[in-house]
Design a protein around this nucleic acid. Structure first.
Length: 475
RNA sequence: GGCCCGUUCGUCUAUCGGUUAGGACACCUGGUUUUCAACCAGGUAAGAGGGGUUCGACUCCCCUACGGGCUGCCA
């Protein structure tokens, strides 16, 4: 961790950005990167921008952009202004390349790709460095052929480039390890290296927080900043997220796309909490709100080692967030989950009952599917077909006892205390504890052996429905 | 191959030269209980290995091992 003393004065408005390439869904690691940027900006009154890095025309798709935007929206990360298409800035990128040319900090290189590839292959075969040194770096313009060319950065060949990284510390690269990177391709389109630097500069990005797979890129990008005389942003390269086995996260580890987590039924607040805590810490704080996260989040709390996904911990946090949510906020989230996971939507009756019953469901569910399972007594309708375990609980003896319950419940006032007393008296009449009668009663009311308290269920369902279900069960 | 980064309980992490190395998740035991969840009490469990520096290293330095990244006219 690096000291927070390197921070720029607070008077400088902070601008962060998330810059995904639209080649697929929003990756869980990308989501965390976005979250860190969002938290950092939002916690300091700064701006959080979104840029779609769509310069690779082959692989970029509008569907992927859509998926990324949807993912961020679900996660609750709002960005400032319109998302910027990097491709749309291509003329500006080319302009900057020309400027570098004019400044003498870049040059035209007429080497063909085949030529360079042949060189690299030979170098690799001989175990030599594959760094390519263009013969055109210091060539006389008079000798330029009438042929396509790329614009390469005239990078320093001696000395070193130092990245003052807020997570990784000072990282030094020998300039002799970097070749003159291509900034503008032969077809006039910009390369990634040029495009990011120009865009980050133009967008006024002050803090670049991204995956540490870009750490070495930062050194190259620094050279462009210097070539243009621009000031560098604050760098913060965060470690990647790995799978539970410590290997780079991939499909075989299960859910990789953020949308999968929504379909799995984790509330967005829990995802934010979990993702924020993954690779970052604020002392012993584990369970916290967005407001606290914004207040606490800083670059110095980010660890330097990659962290692994732990679904158990996510699940635990998920349960805590569901329990802490207000009923009114939970209901629409549950409905969104139902839609996202391809389950049937709630009928208006179900919605009413669910909103009435949420109080006894939310603190016993870890995820939305878990909650839905426990809300089975609400979502199902008569006649209820008990599952195997429930059917077992409704044996002849139990059914007999249950039938004695009906007259008792008929006249009792429908409040918890009285219902409980009625059930207890029937149980007592048979010399059994509440536990003995709760089992079959639960089976009759819910058709399951796992549910909220039988009294809560009766309260939520109402007298008429409750008695009807008991009658159904006792036949 | 070259360059760069990383390594504390199973997992996420605290620690910023002096602690019985703390917390959380998970797990185990016991309690509570109307099932589940929750809750209460307790427990198992860690500084990759080897050298230094220092009165004293998880903390600083070096080496090794193991992971990871970059090394494109991909991003």
């Amino acid at each position: 961790m690096v000291s927070e003393r390197l921070m720029p004065p607070m008077s400088v408005p902070i601008v962060t950005r998330f810059a995904p390439s639209p080649t697929g869904y929003l990756h869980i690691g990308g989501a965390r990167t976005a979250l860190f940027n969002w938290l950092y900006a939002r916690g300091r009154g700064g701006k959080f921008l979104l840029r779609i890095e769509d310069t690779d025309r082959e692989r970029s798709t509008p569907e992927a952009t859509e998926a990324i935007l949807k993912g961020l929206t679900w996660l609750g990360l709002d960005w400032d202004g319109e998302p910027v298409s990097q491709f749309s800035m291509k003329d500006r990128h080319a302009e900057v390349a020309r400027q570098m040319l004019a400044r003498g900090s870049a040059y035209k290189c007429f080497c063909s790709q085949e030529e360079i590839e042949a060189f690299r292959e030979a170098a690799r075969a001989e175990g030599r460095s594959t760094l390519f040194h263009s013969p055109w770096r210091d060539a006389n313009p008079a000798t330029f052929p009438d042929a396509p060319y790329v614009i390469r950065l005239k990078a320093p060949q001696e000395g070193q480039t130092v990245i003052e990284d807020r997570v990784q510390g000072n990282v030094t690269f020998g300039n002799d390890q970097m070749d003159d990177m291509v900034c503008l391709r032969a077809d006039g389109t910009p390369t990634y290296m040029l495009a990011v630097v120009v865009d980050d500069h133009d967008m006024g990005v002050t803090h670049v927080i991204r995956g540490d797979d870009h750490l070495t890129n930062a050194a190259r990008q620094t050279q462009i900043y210097k070539a243009m005389g621009w000031s560098e942003p604050v760098w913060a390269h965060i470690p990647l997220i790995h799978g539970p086995d410590g290997k780079k996260l991939s499909k075989r580890h299960g859910a990789v796309g953020l949308h999968e987590y929504q379909a799995l039924g984790y509330p967005a607040a829990a995802m934010r909490n979990y993702l924020c805590r993954l690779g970052w810490a604020h002392g012993d704080d584990e369970f916290f709100s967005d407001a606290q996260a914004k207040e606490w989040f800083d670059l110095s709390g980010i660890g330097r080692a990659p962290s692994r996904l732990d679904f158990k911990k996510l699940e635990n946090l998920s349960g805590l967030h569901i329990a802490a949510s207000a009923d009114a906020a939970l209901l629409p989230e549950i409905e969104a989950f139902l839609a996202a996971s391809g389950r049937p939507a709630l009928t208006s009756t179900q919605r009413d009952l669910l909103s009435r019953g949420l109080y006894c469901l939310k603190d016993r569910a870890k995820t939305f599917p878990d909650l839905i399972e426990k809300a089975h007594f609400i979502l199902t309708s008569r006649p209820i077909s008990p599952d195997q375990a429930a059917a077992k609980a409704l044996d002849t003896v139990s059914r007999g006892i249950l039938s004695e319950l009906t007259p008792q419940l008929q006249n009792v006032s429908w409040v918890r205390e009285d219902i409980e007393a009625a059930v207890a008296s029937v149980a007592a009449a048979h010399g059994m504890g509440l536990g003995k009668i709760a089992g079959p009663l639960r089976a009759a009311l819910a058709g399951r052996t796992v549910s909220p308290s039988v009294f809560d269920m009766m309260l939520v369902l109402g007298r008429e429905e409750s008695l009807a279900r008991i009658n159904d069960a006792t036949g």
